[in-house]
Design a protein around this nucleic acid. Structure first.
Length: 567
RNA sequence: UGGGGUGUCGUCAAGUGGUAAGACACGGGCCUUUGGAGCCCGCAUUCGGAGGUUCGAAUCCUCCCACCCCAGCCA
């Protein structure tokens, strides 16, 4: 079957309903066969993930199959690099197309034969009009087009010309093969569409074998037909093309898949078109397709999103026909939900503040026990070293705390997670700037492990790290790529890049993490307690130098309280 | 102003003539050695609008309005 066992059955949607009905009516002898048909001209993004999950999970649900097929009909835009990345991404998402890896270019010979068949049937003709002329003859949305003077060429002449097009006798763009349909159709796709063009470009798979290439519209439906696809699921913009695909299939008298269209995914605070994504990459706004701020699969992977969380997201957003923008908060929620269960807990201080425990013996080091997960005891425990000099988070100490601030302040006692209660007794400031550079505390030896035998409570628990033992690390904090939910949508013709978030990346280079993280594997994911989920960057972590990408922060109630207080 | 689509909570989205699921977000409470997690509660008298049919309409009919897609030898 070729499908990874994923979540429970995804929720129903109109496409599944249609297929269920078809099955009930024994259409296609009860066979369900889908396909994911990317063009290898860019990297996959989360919108593609929606299509991938839909096609593969439908196949799984109805005991069918799902093919991977590259729609590689335009050699000027397509590259090997892209097909490799696409395969990697689909695999990483957890899907398996087994031996059904196909290319539209596999069908070039067959497609050529189909074209010949159309010519012989008087349903296609070679047109000598230039591109500009074809555009003129096409008419407009409100005005019908007019027939090409070459429309009435006899079949034998068309056949001869088409053969010679293939043989390379004519210049690029000098002639074209067109379907003979209806120049006055209200559907522009039916106004004698071009189905073959002369194009001398080296194809990444067929090399220089061809100098004519079929158009997508002449390729897609027939490729589905050849593969026996029962349900061709695609996005809304192809709804207008369906009559054309139907026309080809009917004229050619070949197996007729059923096309069903759904709305593509839009996510708030990002962009999803390959064109825009490519622009961000080319102009260096993003460091590459796999920049962790990108909505690409490779970007999300590098950011630390587990594939399970993406699949779950795709199940939850539903499938429908209306244009919509899904709140990116749902994606983030899916990551938190999965990671909360699976990510080992660890302590890391992002913006260190030095803490000296005055009454702790100078050279003493204790190895304290810390569970790797608050509820899943199966994840075991680890030792964390504690000593006289520690680092805590700068924001966890305030000399003059506002109302509802529970953390450390002069004279106040808090708990260091898995360690001791400490009380702040002194503050050292920079004489020039007045900035707090170090604080002094005392600890209560009787609170080892974090509980006071006398039952006294503290209002907060802080994460920490032993200065002498901590590892230095770089941490990259990410925020939404754009400051607008729908970038570039405010005013007409506005450049979407005007809405870029200037603070989408914050790099922290002097973070301290607990020593147990030494040798953490690239791609491994942790929760830094009280901070968020982090993933070891597999590109920039090298040798002993660890670089962490923040996947998502934890929900931050304190931040919300602060926001409310400001208002 | 041609054709094809779509309009249900802040955001997604079920619902297909029997009286508005669910999720995220948001608000409140409980609990807590992560201000995390978890648990509980609240959150559309109303389905783009106006008429009509019906005992009964988000669902059927009529008209209107808004938004999206199409004039590549791109996919």
């Amino acid at each position: 079957m070729g499908i990874v066992k994923t979540n429970a059955a995804p929720p129903p949607n109109f496409i599944r309903n249609i297929i269920a009905e078809d099955l009930k009516a024994n259409k296609n002898e009860g066979r369900v066969h889908t396909r994911f048909p990317p063009e290898p001209n860019g990297y996959l993004h989360i919108g593609h993930a929606k299509a991938i999950c839909l096609n593969f999970s439908i196949a799984a649900e109805f005991d069918g199959m799902c093919n991977l097929r590259f729609d590689d009909t335009n050699p000027t835009k397509e590259e090997e690099e892209y097909t490799e990345s696409i395969k990697e991404d689909v695999r990483w998402l957890g899907f398996d197309w087994e031996d059904r890896e196909f290319y539209a270019s596999d069908y070039f010979e067959q497609l050529y034969e189909y074209a010949v068949q159309l010519i012989k049937d008087g349903k296609a003709y070679v047109c000598d009009l230039s591109a500009d002329e074809i555009r003129e003859y096409r008419g407009t949305l409100t005005k019908p087009g007019k027939d090409s003077p070459y429309r009435t060429r006899p079949a034998e002449e068309n056949l001869d010309l088409f053969t010679r097009m293939r043989a390379g006798e004519f210049e690029d763009g000098s002639r074209v093969l067109r379907a003979k349909i209806d120049m006055s159709s209200s559907n522009l796709n039916m106004r004698d569409p071009v189905i073959y063009r002369i194009l001398r470009a080296t194809h990444h798979r067929t090399s220089d074998k061809w100098c004519i290439y079929p158009m997508y519209d002449f390729t897609h439906g027939q490729s589905d037909s050849i593969e026996g696809i029962t349900h061709s699921i695609c996005t809304l913009e192809f709804e207008d093309h369906r009559p054309l695909y139907d026309w080809f299939l009917d004229e050619l008298k070949i197996f007729h898949p059923q096309q069903i269209e759904f709305a593509r995914l839009n996510l708030s605070y990002t962009v999803m078109s390959k064109r825009k994504l490519l622009e961000l990459v080319r102009q260096g706004v993003a460091t590459g397709w796999d920049d962790p701020r990108m909505p690409t699969i490779s970007g999300l992977r590098r950011r630390g999103y587990p594939p399970e969380s993406i699949r779950n997201f795709c199940d939850r957003i539903g499938v429908a026909k209306r244009d919509s923008i899904v709140d990116i908060a749902l994606l983030e929620h899916c990551a938190r939900e999965y990671l909360n269960e699976r990510a080992p807990r660890v302590m890391g201080v992002l913006r260190p503040l030095r803490v000296v425990i005055d009454n702790y013996p100078e050279n003493q080091v204790e190895e304290l026990d810390a569970p790797n997960h608050p509820t899943d005891t199966g994840m075991g425990t680890r030792k964390v070293p504690f000593s006289r000099v520690l680092y805590i988070e700068q924001e966890d100490f305030l000399e003059d705390p506002p109302k509802k601030y529970y953390r450390l302040a002069p004279g106040r006692e808090v708990r260091l997670r898995y360690a001791y209660f400490i009380k702040c007794v002194d503050v050292v400031k920079d004489e020039q700037t007045g900035e707090v550079v170090e604080i002094h505390c005392t600890y209560d030896p009787k609170t080892r492990g974090g509980d006071a035998p006398d039952g006294r409570k503290v209002k907060s628990t802080l994460h920490w790290v032993s200065a002498a033992h901590a590892l230095k690390a770089e941490v990259r904090l990410y925020d939404h790529l754009f400051i607008k939910a729908n970038p570039g949508a405010e005013k007409d013709g506005a450049d979407f890049k005007a809405d870029l978030n200037p603070h989408s990346l914050e790099t922290l280079t002097s973070c301290y993490i607990e020593p147990g993280l030494a040798g953490a594997l690239p791609g491994s994911r942790y929760q830094f307690e009280r901070q968020g989920y982090f993933c070891v960057d597999h590109v920039d972590s090298s040798g002993g130098a660890l670089v962490f990408n923040r996947t998502v922060s934890l929900r931050d109630t304190w931040a919300r309280i602060q926001k409310a207080q400001k208002r």
